[in-house]
Structures are given as structure tokens and as C-alpha cells.
Design a protein around this nucleic acid. Structure first.
Lengths: 341, 341
DNA sequence: TTGTAAGCGTTATCAC
DNA sequence: GTGATAACGCTTACAA
């Protein structure tokens, strides 16, 4: 009696396997008493219907896959938490895949997921600069897919985003209002759509306020901590900006470290604003002014969108776009400290 | 030609399904040319062997489940990242389950996972105060299980931990060396083993330095942000400690917020040290002295331990304990600032 | 209400 | 080297 399956349970109860099966499905006709008896015995023997057998039979997995560029980032862990909550409430399990911003990993994950392992995918993309067409190759067999935050504009699938253009515009205007005239924009890869959108808000805000745009004030960073440290220090030293707008929180942290080292005072010498969902932004030295995306809510919405498709309430190619509001929270990193004046 | 399976691929190539199958397994006898032909066609038609059918047949899922108390915590997201890396390298997928520190969720997750969905489990537990015996009820059928960080002492299964007793002892001694005489210990649930172990280090350090222990200096907090805020403010006001040692980073943040509100100066009026894997601890105001656990490495080790069992290199009940070193990193939150003297 | 039996997509065993 | 076939554990017509 090593592994207990439906057959053994049936034998133990002198019933057929179909009856057992029915006890575990809500829709079926089954005698209440028999059902009780079965469930009791199942509990006693610790029987669980084999998931793979059920799914093979039913052709669905009750599993969704979540693909993110990184995990050690407050935004993504909060978003995943939101997704997890909704998935669990719907009786779904979630698989996690981390691309480390590697396009090839993304392609591999997606392709492998089309083997029945998952019923749907929620993804924040990594390969904006690469060929997105691999997603179209599945044709009608493509799994339901929902993008969040980092998306491929040219793939017609539902998405949950924030209005990054507007936030960036307002963030830049905020710096200008605080007296900044030389504002640097720090981005991880400026050719990626998320970097581009955010950059456009920055550029347009500069234009509106008739501040000349200097190409070199757009500082292209990398995924390496050490490289960024050098890049940012050089930028601060050579370009002498009085304001910095960073497209991801990681770069704001790197800027803080650079300023500590170079003895540049934030906000007196340099004002800093960043996209960030860091919950302890108020505790930083100085507290960081942020554009805070509603991360958990984005995860929630993305999951809900996916379940709409899975429940056949919506066609998977219907281009549903949910736009949520980010909030700019002004803290000390962009406001002159009177006590020091 | 909606869904492509092994049968259709076989027909398309005028071969039998067995031959197709062989092309995808490394061990089998198959003509090199045939194999090429099959793989080419498979790629063309975007064929992926159905995961559930394979797993049903092979009775294993190439999937491991990771159960954690929370996700929005630097320690756990780093640990998961470590696990993910090792799992991926071994061709395994990972399922994520978040208990929100709810024992019943933990039990439900574990029970359901014994339906074939996962081949093994890596868990940081939530129910230290509750009955762990549910894990023994599976008998020999229990899935391979590896604990990390928060464990059940009484369940014989491999585990990866840090020496929390020692770290807590040293942390407390550090506060004493900095002149603290009334040291509060903040814990989320003092009856839980992780809270207890860490508390014991604290108590023994006090004893060693002949500091009287006051029951009320052990402050039992909750999982609610708002409740903790009140609890901590009351503790700071009523007990007037000169040092605080917090067992999880969340409580250190709450202490910072409370001090800001109460205008208590860290480190002048109060010194703070905490368990935390926060990478930006140096950026806090003031920078936070931490006991930093090697989170990613712990994840790595836990995954490696699990794979040892899955590869049959080790019995799953062999009580293998890996102890890693935490590091106490002294920063401004525990050191008097000379410039203010 | 319950039982019988076919089939989900694979893979392993055994022929050829 | 390749093909036929049974089996993995479950669900669902259909039959009783």
C-alpha cells in the first residue's frame, strides 16, 4: 500500500473508480452518504487525486506561469504577491520564472510553457530590443497571455500598465519646479520601451519649460552594480547635474551611494526622484521622492484579466488595456532643507 | 491541426509514436538521421511533448514547490532567487506558495502538493506554535522536504539554517558594548522557534554582562503594520529602552518610523540592530546595523540538498543540517555620532 | 445512483 | 532501428 490511487481507494470501499471520482467533483450525481463515506476514507488514507492524471484528462492544468525580469525588486515581489493572491482564490497554482533580463531565457520559458504545463502566462517582458515575433508563431495555439508593466507594444494581448509617460513628465516638472536646470535621466537600457516611454516624458517636460536638452545627460546604465557605480560617478563628476531622474529604483540607490562617496549632498547639491515601489523610501537618507506604482494592484489586475480569458469571458486576443495611476510622493530628496539654508 | 501531439507528428513523418518519443530521450537507440528529421519537423510544427502525459507516465514532475511565509521581504525574495537558479540549472520548475504566516494555509499547501504536482518541497515554516505532526502522517510517502531558516526542530528532514543563537548573542553584546543598559527585544511571535532561538541569545548575553532581564522589555508584536506601530510607540515611551534588537527587519523599520514620530534620535537616544538582508541598509537614516543572513546562498544550499535527495544520493530522512554564517555589519544605528557630541 | 470502458499523450517493454 | 501495445491515474459518456 505504498502509493494510494483511485483504484485502491475504490477497492477499499468496494466501489468503482467512477464513483470515487464523482465524490471529488461537484457537478456529479452521487449519493450524499456515499460521498461522505468516500471523502472520509480518502482523508484517512491521505488520498489526493493525481494532478497530472486529471489534467491530462481534462486538458488543463489550473496553473499559471509568471515571468519577471528580476525578483529582488520591491515592485516585482509586490506584483507577484498580488498575482498569487488572486490565483489562489481561483484555485490556481503559480509557477515563477525569472529571466534576469535575458531575452533568450524568456523565449525558452515561453516555448516550454506551451506543453500543457500552464494554462496562461503573466509576463513583464525582457526583450524589448529583440524580435517579439516568436509570440506570434504559436498562432491560435498561443496560451492566454497578459503583460504587465513592461510590454511589447506590437503584440496584441491584454496588458496592465501605468501611465509612465505622464508620471515621467510630472516628475521632471517637479524637479524643474524645485529649481533644477541640469537634469540627468538614468536608464538601464534606453532602447527598451519602458525606458523610452519614461524618457519621452522627461524630454517633453524639458521642452515645455524651455530647457535645452543635452544628449549626454541621458545616462545609459547596465545591469551590473559595479559598472553602474562607475558610470554614475563619472556622470555626476563630469556633467554636474543638479537633478537626477532615474527610471528604476536600483539606479536611485546607486546614485545615493555615489553621492555619499563623492560628498555630494542630496538634496542641496543634487535632487533625486525615481520610479520605485520601495515601502521604506521614507526611511532613506534623505527620504526618497518616488513615483510609486501600485504594484500589488497591478498584479491583481493582471491576474483578473487572465482569469477573464480563462473563464471564457473574453477572447484572448482582445486588446484590453488597463491603465493604473502611479503616485508621485514628494520627500526630502527633492526638497531643499530649510534648516540647512 | 489545432493541437499538435506525438501522434500527429508521427503521422506527418510516417513514423510510429515510439520513434518520435525516442527522438526526445537521450538514452534510446535511434538512427541519427531519423532523429534529426524528427527534431526538425517538431520545431517546424512547434511540437512540445505534453508535460502532463510524460509525468503521468514517468511518475515525476520535474517541479519543486517553495513555501514561504511572505514575499515582500528581502530575505525571502533573495532566497527564492537562489533556489530558482539551482532549480533551473537542474531542469526543474518552481511553484511558489505564500502562507502569510498562516499555519492552515501551510497545511493545505503541503497536503495538496502530495498529489504528484511536485517532486519535492523547500519550506520556511509558519506554524511553529502548532502541531507539526501533519508532516508525519504521510509516512513513507512524504515528499522530500528541505527546511530553510524557519524550521520544525522535531521533524527529521534536511535543513539549512544560520546560527541565530550566536548572532543574537553577539548582536546583544554589541549593543551592550555601545553602552546600552535597557535593551528591548522585538519579536513577532515569541513562542515561535525562530523568535525563541533569537531571544535566547539575547537573554544569555544580558546574563553574561550581569544586566537584569526585564520581562516587559520583550515586546511581542504582530503581523499588522498599524498594530505594531502602536505597540512599539508605547514600548518606547513607557519602557524607555536605550537599545532595540529586532528579530525581523520589518520591526526595525517600524521602530524607525516610531522614532521619527516620537522624535527619538537613533543612535543618540536609542540604538537599533536587526536581522535583515536589506541590500540598502547603508542608505537608511541612520544606516542600519544588521545581522545579515546569506539569503541567496541559503536558497542555493537548500535547493542543492533537495536535489541530492531527488537524485537518490541521500535518504530523504537523513537529518542533514547545513549551518551558514550570518554577518553582523555595524553601521550608524548603533554607533554614537561624534559630530553630534 | 452506480458501474463499465474508452481515452487523455506519453513511454517502456517486447517483438520484429 | 523501428513498430505495436500496454500502462500511468483519472474523468466522462453511456449502460445498467
Amino acid at each position: 500500500m505504498d502509493h494510494i490511487n483511485i483504484k485502491k481507494l475504490a477497492e477499499a470501499l468496494n466501489l468503482s473508480t467512477s464513483t470515487i471520482s464523482r465524490a471529488f467533483r461537484d457537478n456529479s450525481d452521487i449519493n450524499g452518504a456515499t460521498k461522505e463515506r468516500i471523502l472520509a476514507k480518502a482523508k484517512e488514507l491521505n488520498y489526493q487525486p493525481n494532478h497530472y492524471a486529471s489534467n491530462l484528462r481534462e486538458q488543463k492544468s489550473k496553473t499559471i506561469a509568471v515571468i519577471v525580469p528580476e525578483l529582488a525588486n520591491n515592485y516585482f515581489s509586490q506584483a507577484i504577491h498580488g498575482i498569487e493572491r488572486v490565483a489562489r482564490a481561483n484555485g490556481y497554482h503559480i509557477l515563477i520564472y525569472v529571466t534576469d533580463d535575458d531575452y533568450h531565457k524568456e523565449v525558452t520559458f515561453i516555448k516550454h510553457l506551451h506543453n500543457g504545463r500552464a494554462d496562461g502566462i503573466i509576463m513583464s517582458v525582457s526583450g524589448e530590443a529583440n524580435d517579439h515575433n516568436y509570440l506570434n508563431e504559436f498562432g491560435t495555439k498561443r496560451l492566454p497571455l497578459v503583460f504587465f508593466d513592461r510590454i511589447y507594444e506590437d503584440i496584441a494581448t491584454p496588458r496592465v500598465v501605468t501611465n509612465d509617460y505622464k508620471s515621467s513628465f510630472l516628475a521632471t516638472e517637479h524637479l524643474i519646479a524645485q529649481g533644477c536646470q541640469r537634469i540627468a535621466y538614468l536608464v538601464v537600457n534606453k532602447s527598451l520601451s519602458i525606458g523610452k516611454t519614461r524618457m519621452q516624458g522627461y524630454l517633453d517636460a524639458l521642452a515645455k519649460h524651455q530647457i535645452d536638452f543635452e544628449e549626454q545627460l541621458i545616462v545609459d546604465c547596465t545591469n551590473s552594480y559595479d559598472e553602474n557605480s562607475i558610470i554614475i560617478k563619472n556622470a555626476l563628476t563630469d556633467l554636474k547635474p543638479d537633478g537626477v531622474f532615474t527610471s528604476v529604483e536600483r539606479l536611485a540607490f546607486a546614485t545615493y551611494y555615489a553621492c555619499y562617496d563623492l560628498e555630494i549632498s542630496i538634496p542641496d547639491d543634487l535632487k533625486v526622484i525615481s520610479f520605485s515601489s520601495l515601502e521604506i523610501a521614507p526611511l532613506l537618507n534623505p527620504s526618497l521622492t518616488t513615483i510609486t506604482q501600485p504594484a500589488a494592484e497591478i498584479g491583481d489586475e493582471a491576474a483578473k484579466l487572465l482569469f477573464k480569458i480563462l473563464d471564457c469571458e473574453q477572447d484572448k486576443n482582445f486588446l484590453n488595456e488597463v491603465v493604473l495611476e502611479s503616485e508621485i510622493i514628494i520627500r526630502n530628496s527633492t526638497v531643499n532643507q530649510l534648516k540647512k539654508a
